[in-house]
Design a protein around this nucleic acid. Sequence first.
DNA 1: CCTTTGTGATCTACGCTGTATAGATCTACA
DNA 2: TGTAGATCTATACAGCGTAGATCACAAAGG
Lengths: 212, 212
Amino acid sequence: MAELGVEARRREILTAALALADERGLDALSMRAVAARVGVTPMALYPYVGNKDALLDGLVDLLLAELLPAAAAPGAWDVRLRAIAHAGRALAHRHPAVYPLLLSRPAITPDAVRLVDALYGALLTAGVPPAQVPRLERLVSTYVLGYAVGEITGRFAPADPRRHARAEAAGSAAPSHQELSGVLAQPPDWDAEFAAGLDDLLHVILNHAQPS
Amino acid sequence: MAELGVEARRREILTAALALADERGLDALSMRAVAARVGVTPMALYPYVGNKDALLDGLVDLLLAELLPAAAAPGAWDVRLRAIAHAGRALAHRHPAVYPLLLSRPAITPDAVRLVDALYGALLTAGVPPAQVPRLERLVSTYVLGYAVGEITGRFAPADPRRHARAEAAGSAAPSHQELSGVLAQPPDWDAEFAAGLDDLLHVILNHAQPS
DNA sequence: CCTTTGTGATCTACGCTGTATAGATCTACA
DNA sequence: TGTAGATCTATACAGCGTAGATCACAAAGG
């Protein structure tokens, strides 16, 4: 075994855990399974990751780190904001098992701060009054996280093919579904929908921006 | 024990499980604990709720059922939409432990369809073209769920009081935080922020609406 | 009245989980 | 060579979800 610092070893463990979750899902992410993948006994992980909860927090940070390049990219404010948003969604497709943790585990690590700071910067240069910046940052990040999680977990597209049948079965109890049966029959283009929602939010931001 | 139908018994079990989760959190929601609360052996639950996963789905449905009154309320389209949104957020504060499941477990029960249908109806009467209705429904519901989950899980307001210290420690790496130090020092008004975001989304909807 | 049938709850057990605690093993320096 | 420190291991415990077998008891048939 290569002799590394404890920080390097910690990252080694976390990346093994992330790979495991990517391959076999979050339920398969047990301390024992991670330890086996690292080639070590379960208890050997504890000095490096604390406990399982802390390990999950570590995974969240690993995900955030993948977003940093997009956050540091140059360009006009809307280009930067779009880049971060699309990177956030792409991240979800890369790590669907772990991604939902971003919504449920608050991260206050330096990387998380840097990411929020990039969004703050984009909003500020867009001309948004400082008092509105944190709120609109939360609006945008909630959209990106919520949309991506919705895609991933199947909230938007229930796998059940009887979906329409159900709606029809509800019959008069779901009149608007019937009125929309035409558009509901077509499978949505999730890429386009995400971009459209993002455009809508950029308009919201512009509405709040003051001409400099 | 009163002799009830299996459906009634199932609801009895689910409401006990919900109460347990409300009181002691999701981690304490074990089959054994639910059984003890119902006054029965763990294995006795299985004919009624299937297994733990199905029990959680049942809890999701229980939450959705609480939203139905708001979905059925009358009024102008924007009044109805606001009522549903605020009811969705209030639900999160009532059941903070279970609420996040709404984002991670797709629900295709009749109640879920009815709720979506109510949102479709509001958007249609607002004059939104049918092709845009499902997308904007997802935009609104994602906002409500994502915002409420963010509030609940502490994503918006990390409990760590060293938050500002951290931002300052990041120093020049978080320049926008420094620029916003004034507004960041004030504690946000979450009620007002939710309403403001909802207003923004209503403007988005109106932008897409065609005059009838 | 006794027996049979069926149904719901129970009992026991298995493999899994996170992790406390104690012990073993190896490295590096005096 | 002896010892200190760091690192990993071994064992154990309480709790989890749930499969399988068993039990208790109410209603129905002879």
